[in-house]
Nucleic acid binder design. Structure first.
Lengths: 118, 118
DNA sequence: CTGTATCCTTATTGATACTG
DNA sequence: CAGTATCAATAAGGATACAG
């Protein structure tokens, strides 16, 4: 029996990890395949990407759909249930963009490449 | 120069870690002192609590106010800037409570103690 | 294209003792 | 009460090679 004190522990059990937030945000904006995710997140290893996608499927956040073409074509997408999480993550993504601006205003040496959320 | 791909990386640089989300949620509902946080999060060590509070102050999410009583009385609270993050974290906390219910409905052995957010 | 298996490295956290 | 210092343990991720 797993026991949480407060809700946010459960949330982070689901989304924490160095890469899960990125994976979810990219899928949230339509990057749906293994190879495409690898291209958008070049620093991730295939091993870790696979592991984390698998966990998100088990947690009912993502679906994994196999198209029986040759070669195989596999797509990940949010479940209807996962959509509620996606909304919050995209908010957090927007907050991060604001946060980088805030840090820059304070003189920090940071920058951000893409505006994923507009 | 620190370089992010998308906003959520910056967000998680700020809030990730096993304990920061808990710390922020508790402070968000008025648990403002070192000792009080230790009581609400009994598994955290003093070392880690101190480290993470310090980082959050540096990141301009929290303020640290020292009252020169004897013994010293120190309080942590959200900065005006940090408030925007607090809102999202409390949403995420609420999502986690829903998520536990969702998992229970699927037969998982999980439970949650407090309803921090109502 | 997508994923698995093995081994190795390192970042985070935990335990404990101590200070103003 | 609040915080620091040191060292040890562990979990997360990285590298590489291989497979359906």
């Amino acid at each position: 029996m797993k026991k949480y004190h407060i809700g946010i522990e459960a949330s982070f059990d689901t989304i924490a990890g160095k890469w899960k937030p990125l994976i979810l945000c990219y899928i949230g904006v339509g990057v749906n395949r293994n190879g495409d995710l690898m291209r958008h997140i070049p620093e991730i290893s295939q091993k870790v990407l696979t592991e984390q996608l698998k966990q998100l499927v088990v947690d009912d956040i993502l679906t994994r759909t196999v198209y029986e073409t040759k070669p195989l074509h596999i797509e990940y997408a949010f479940t209807p249930y996962g959509e509620s999480l996606k909304q919050i993550l995209l908010e957090l993504c927007a907050w991060g963009e604001k946060h980088v601006a805030h840090q820059q205003a304070a003189g920090a040496q940071v920058e951000i490449e893409e505006g994923l959320v507009q």
